[in-house]
């Protein structure tokens, strides 16, 4: 298909989004990510039945936590993308890239650049 997506995105592979935990998303932000999105299977199509639904709840919890500490829960999203749907994958990557660009750098990134140790 030779599709392209923004080079700002780093992919971290998981066996299933059900593997993701709050700490993984928190640590991504702590290490300076401006945004994070979890790309899981479409709802109802999880190979392990409920992995993506569990991930969705953890994403929701983490969004609230990010709001609480002033990072902004809007920097974290969850998308359902079929494994075979390359065009949608590229589209979501573009969408997220634009959304985060509009939000600007994460306040944590600013702190890292100012030399505040983490």
């Amino acid at each position: 298909m030779r599709l392209t997506y923004p080079d700002s995105i780093r992919i971290i592979r998981l066996p299933c989004t059900g593997k993701i935990d709050v700490i993984h998303m928190m640590e991504a932000f702590r290490k300076g990510a401006d945004g994070v999105y979890v790309a899981g299977c479409l709802e109802g199509e999880c190979h392990y039945l409920a992995g993506n639904l569990r991930a969705k709840k953890r994403v929701e919890y983490t969004r609230k936590l990010l709001d609480e500490i002033g990072i902004g829960g809007g920097r974290l999203e969850m998308y359902g993308i079929a494994a075979s749907d390359g065009p949608r994958f590229a589209e979501v990557a573009e969408e997220m890239h634009e959304k985060i660009k509009a939000l600007g750098p994460s306040p944590i990134k600013g702190a890292i650049q100012k030399g505040v140790l983490l």
């Binding site: 702590r30 936590l65 500490i69 944590i108 702190a111």
Partner: peptide, 12 residues
């Protein structure tokens, strides 16, 4: 998780 959250809140 709390450790991560506190560190971020301080860094901010």
């Amino acid at each position: 998780i709390l450790s991560s959250a506190l560190k971020m809140a301080f860094s901010k």
